[in-house]
Design a protein around this nucleic acid. Structure first.
Length: 570
RNA sequence: UCGGGAAUCGUCCAAUGGUAGGACAGCGGAUUUUGGUUCCGUCAAUCUAGGUUCGAUUCCUAGUUCCCGAGCCA
């Protein structure tokens, strides 16, 4: 969040920063933004981008003028909104690393004022109660090619409108009987101007105002006015609201908010990422139809899901920062996200060894019952002067496990892992040569007979001979058996549902696989929520939900880059 | 084709009349007790056609393609 304090946006500033820079340069006294989610679902990566943008802007310009970014829950539709979502939203924004200070608001805080604003519009002849049925309204709205026609109720008197609106709120009418509409222009080429509804009857209790209200304001009416009430200067939203902007301005104008002191709306394009879905509707289906366990299923692109998966907040922030802010239609390669993830994890995670698919190795020239505790650092010494952040001891015994895929009976070309007659290094331990395989009745390799070179203890041979392959391993006698969950992308198509009827047809059937792994002893101390690199495999997170004290339950956050896989493919 | 938007390497983002640059991905190499990391190198783009200009990604004209909009959702 360092960057020159916004005096001049400078090179690489996005278009919104440039606009704000110009405003600040022209003497605007403050910058106020807001993040306005509707509490009817969990926040996802698309929201993260908006959060980083809005809160990031307040941070960026704080050196130039007083700034603030509010968190406003846009709770104007009690039918869908729940307090559970309010809590998760607050938690997610905080976890991402942002602070709304005193600026926690609810659109429902303004219901009283909003109602008064509506009454004012009626008094000014700028709003009326329409008593057409929803079907009639739809039919008289016209379409892209034909203008709408005026409602027969359009010219009701102010008194009648006031009376009806009051009785709507008094609960005298059923949902759908009447609606309050702004009186604008039924022939406008912008359909949002064709007398948009601004208040509807909803006999639903609200999570904060209870049963007080029987009419609730619509988005177009409530949003801009809430911005104005809060003193928001820059109201940032996504592109689909672009042609709502004239309406946003219309309400502010109609209610006398002076140009120059009122908020303005700016739009940027929403985030799309390959192999995932980021629409609230689709995420709801995944949860409610049971395709995932919950909103925080580690395969979900929700912030809660990604947190549980093992994403550090910095990875999300870096990703959003690099994704940029424009009005282009984009589909970002998920590789950008994965890169931000690995980059962050690589810099912070401890290393340890675990074997996902164990194959037994017997070190024949080691005595039965032999145990030697070898020291292994938690962090690789990448550079000179790198901090030594501790080490653990790993038991070396006669019977070990290595990764099944690290042995090949008939070695492929460029294979420098284990095969009969080949020598490899066991990381931190020694050089090891395989002499024979033991197979079961089915002909499957179940055990390798090997010998170690005692003059290579620690992994460095006395004669300095080169060994290309280094394998991870775990003692068969000291290793702990544990189920490890391997998550993969939720969808197998870059654009789920594209060209198909339903995005669910592209669900990846193997997005979750459980393996019975063997963990080195030090892994048993990993606290829930921590991510550790299992060397040569990837980053694994001790799940906050499934772990028990002293018995972490790991899942894969993301694998390491695997250039051998490419070589092997040819 | 009614209105509103957008078009730059495979992907994302810069360049605001003066050498089209960065990141991700890819490819090649060096280093490496993780086929990881790191480092070096390399491939690769201005939607099209006209025009203005010494010079156009940028300005003008015409076209093309894509996205959004007809909830009492947000």
């Amino acid at each position: 969040m360092e960057q020159s304090a916004g005096q001049s946006a400078g090179q690489g500033a996005n278009f919104i920063e440039e606009i704000i820079s110009a405003h600040v340069a022209a003497g605007r006294p403050r910058v106020v933004t807001r993040f306005p989610p509707e509490p009817n679902g969990y926040l996802h990566l698309g929201h993260a981008k908006s959060i980083c943008l809005n809160f990031g802007l307040a941070l960026k310009f704080s050196g130039a003028v007083p700034t603030q970014c509010n968190l406003r829950l846009d709770d104007t539709n009690p039918a869908a909104e729940e307090d559970e979502f309010v809590q998760s939203i607050k938690e997610d924004v905080r976890w991402l690393g942002f602070d709304w200070g005193e600026g926690l608001y609810f659109a429902s805080d303004y219901f009283e004022q909003l109602f008064e604003f509506a009454v004012r519009l009626i008094r000014d002849g700028k709003a009326y109660v329409d008593s057409q049925t929803p079907e009639q309204m739809k039919a008289t709205r016209g379409d892209f090619h034909t203008p709408g026609v005026n409602s027969p109720f359009r010219d009701r008197s102010v008194e009648e409108n006031l009376d009806l609106f009051g009785r709507m709120q008094a609960g005298e009418f059923e949902h759908g009987a009447h609606v309050l509409r702004a009186k604008i222009d039924m022939a406008s080429p912008n359909i949002n101007f064709r007398d948009p509804p601004i208040y509807r009857i909803l006999h639903a209790d609200h999570h904060r105002t209870g049963s007080k209200w029987r009419v609730y304001p619509m988005y177009d009416f409530a949003h801009g006015l809430s911005d104005a009430i809060e003193g928001v200067t820059h109201s940032i939203c996504t592109l689909e609201f672009e042609d709502h902007r004239p309406l946003y301005d219309w309400f502010l104008e109609a209610l006398g908010f002076e140009e120059g002191a009122r908020p303005h709306q700016y739009e940027f394009s929403r985030l799309n990422i390959t192999y995932t879905v980021l629409s609230k509707r689709r995420l709801q289906r995944l949860v409610y139809e049971g395709h995932v366990e919950s909103w925080d299923d580690p395969r979900m692109p929700t912030i809660a899901g990604m947190r549980r998966r093992g994403y550090p907040p910095a990875a999300l922030r870096h990703f959003c920062e690099r994704a940029g802010v424009t009005k282009n239609n984009t589909l970002m390669d998920v590789g950008h996200l994965e890169h931000a993830l690995r980059e962050t994890l690589n810099a912070t995670c401890r290393r340890a060894m675990a074997v996902l698919r164990p194959l037994k190795v017997v070190v024949e020239n080691l005595p039965e019952g032999h145990v030697e505790w070898l020291e292994a650092p938690f962090y690789p010494a990448e550079e000179e002067g790198a901090l030594d952040l501790g080490a653990r001891r790993v038991p070396f015994t006669r019977e070990l496990y290595i990764e099944r895929e690290d042995f090949m009976e008939v070695p492929a070309k460029k294979w420098f892992r284990l095969s009969v007659g080949a020598e490899v290094r066991l990381r931190y331990a020694c050089l090891l040569t395989c002499h024979a395989v033991v197979k079961d009745e089915g002909g499957e390799v179940v055990e390798l007979r090997c010998t170690w070179d005692p003059a290579s203890k620690g992994g460095t041979p006395a004669d300095g001979r080169k060994v290309k392959g280094t394998l991870h391993w775990v003692s068969a006698t000291h290793g702990a058996r544990a189920d490890v969950l391997l998550y993969d992308r939720l969808f197998s198509a870059p654009s789920p549902g594209e060209g198909k009827g339903d995005f669910l047809e592209d669900l990846n059937p193997s997005s979750l696989e459980a393996v019975s792994a063997v963990l080195e002893p030090a892994l048993l101390d990993v606290p829930p929520g921590e991510v550790v690199q299992f060397e040569r495999l990837g980053y694994f997170c001790a799940d906050v939900k499934r772990s028990a004290p002293g018995a972490p339950s790991f899942h894969r956050t993301i694998g390491l880059k695997d250039s051998w896989a490419k070589v092997a493919q040819g």
